[in-house]
Design a protein around this nucleic acid. Sequence first.
DNA 1: ACTTGACTTGAAGTTGACTTCAACTTTAAG
DNA 2: CTTAAAGTTGAAGTCAACTTCAAGTCAAGT
Lengths: 157, 157
Amino acid sequence: MDTNPVLTVSEVARRSGFAASALRYYEREGLVRAARTGGGQRRYQRTVLRRLAFIRAARNVGLTLDEVREELKRLPESRTPTKADWTRISRNWRHRLDDQIAALQALRDGLDSCIGCGCLSLQSCSMSNPDDVAASLVPSGGAVFLPALLRRGTDAD
Amino acid sequence: MDTNPVLTVSEVARRSGFAASALRYYEREGLVRAARTGGGQRRYQRTVLRRLAFIRAARNVGLTLDEVREELKRLPESRTPTKADWTRISRNWRHRLDDQIAALQALRDGLDSCIGCGCLSLQSCSMSNPDDVAASLVPSGGAVFLPALLRRGTDAD
DNA sequence: ACTTGACTTGAAGTTGACTTCAACTTTAAG
DNA sequence: CTTAAAGTTGAAGTCAACTTCAAGTCAAGT
């Protein structure tokens, strides 16, 4: 089997790009699992790498860890997830990204029409009117995300 | 003059959409100023409303408060800022938004090419490869922002 | 057996942008 | 003058997603 847990935490850290402390945190949060040696050290299955890849992709799309945990619940427990499983649960990310893009475009267009007048009026300018901006950015009522994504850029150092 | 400070904190809160606690915080952080009554209560000039509109717009675009403070330093101190002043300092926000949009579109396109294969491979898939994603999202080397923006939507309740 | 590097834990710290709290004071209306 | 609403302060709390720390344990090579 390749469900044999053989990877140490530092190997998983290196190959996934997550810090070892993050892996411990994810385990506490119920996002990944690890077997233990007799002495209590973690040993990971190779499949954890795909799971971590999914987590990273989801985080890049802007999901919170809570949301990632929810999505992961949709995977089959009895067998190793297939490519089709991963595809299925990440399919709706596209809408999320589309919404985020649309929100930003709306904001940019608002800026374009605002910048000519320098108004920034609380009453009429959609750039600074709290209600207008909120409304244009959150079309579907649910929260729209994308925080970690862009900060994550500095990880590449 | 209309530099006469007459607005109470609750009036400014209502008209700006910021919570009173946020106004106090902004004052501590040096983003806005307020005169005081004999008894120590805040009294704001009407011009603070435009300043707060600018702050909200900047926050919506994704600037941190540190960055907002920097931008505000570019305003003239000796006179009340004109529309042209506000326009001047908000002009480069467009590039920032364009960059953010481009980053998201790149991410979406990566998702499109990934979702067909369900790979999410750490080696080859740009969705989950930490370096690739970082590189594609931060083209100009500087940080790209946009966190508060989308959470801000819930303010409208 | 020894040494060294990797690993373990719980608790506490970090960041940014605020909010909340407790205790007290000021202001404005009546 | 009284009273209620609104204001004041510093300190502490919140949230998410981790990181850092201290103090100790394990694994593997020689």
